[in-house]
Design a protein around this nucleic acid. Sequence first.
DNA 1: CATAGATGCTTGCGAATGCAAGTATCTATG
DNA 2: CATAGATACTTGCATTCGCAAGCATCTATG
Lengths: 148, 148
Amino acid sequence: MSKTPFTTVINLLRAQALIQERFSGELGSVHGLALNEALLLMHLEKAPLRRLTRVDLAKRLHASPSTVTRMAAPMEKIGLVARQADPRDARLAYVVLTEAGLTLVGDVRKTLERRSSELFRDRWSDAEVASLAKLLGRLTAGELGDLA
Amino acid sequence: MSKTPFTTVINLLRAQALIQERFSGELGSVHGLALNEALLLMHLEKAPLRRLTRVDLAKRLHASPSTVTRMAAPMEKIGLVARQADPRDARLAYVVLTEAGLTLVGDVRKTLERRSSELFRDRWSDAEVASLAKLLGRLTAGELGDLA
DNA sequence: CATAGATGCTTGCGAATGCAAGTATCTATG
DNA sequence: CATAGATACTTGCATTCGCAAGCATCTATG
């Protein structure tokens, strides 16, 4: 039995920790957001009508609905998102991206794209990065919400 | 400017969430450990004398020293690790793997290796998995503690 | 139309974690 | 040897998160 799959998993966990550390700092100091909050805004940006229910957001963020409720509250307070009811189903409380949120998420995306490029700037060819993206994409093929 | 690096980072974050979800369940129910606790034991297993200081463990786990202190306490209580003083430096409090811990970490490793294999069982050739492992390994080249 | 089950959201509670401060010890400098 | 700074660990406090329970609403069935 080969141990290559295990090595792959371990390396992936390490790479994720590296990225989290590198990105969280600038994201927090420049935009005042945590990485998860940035991902939430980007999911809304990609969604039809720029809105999603809390349950849908939870699935895309791999979080619980209660976490999404609590994440959205302060972002609503500062005007990045708003709460929107559904006229047909009174249970639903959409989280909808505001104009301010749309502007911010554009800046956030630029920051993340720049940091991502820096991550591969040295010792990586374009083909290698593309190969890595493709392999990782296949790993998560059945998942919701692409963001990219 | 290409967006491939950004796509790569997003896919990596998604893949990490997938792995965390798939592994945590069995790790907890079968061995009674969280993923981070399993990683802690595996770092000890790889270390000389099967022991590390809390600060060294924190670096390898990408956690704070206080987190390591609190993680080690219950594992010491159930006999997986022990506390060991350094005769030359009274500040150091090594976390050392016990025999019971060594036995458990062997089982845990087998579980993780099997789950990792299942992750790539369908639609992946050996060469593709090896390629992914290599690319991820390059991303974390400068880091401590290999585990694999 | 009435009821049972399913779904979406929120809240209480406990667990995990980081930061900052405090203590103990070591090391370098004079 | 005395002192200042560095290092290792721990603890108090605040934050974040998931689970379970509760409430409101919707849907299916009779």
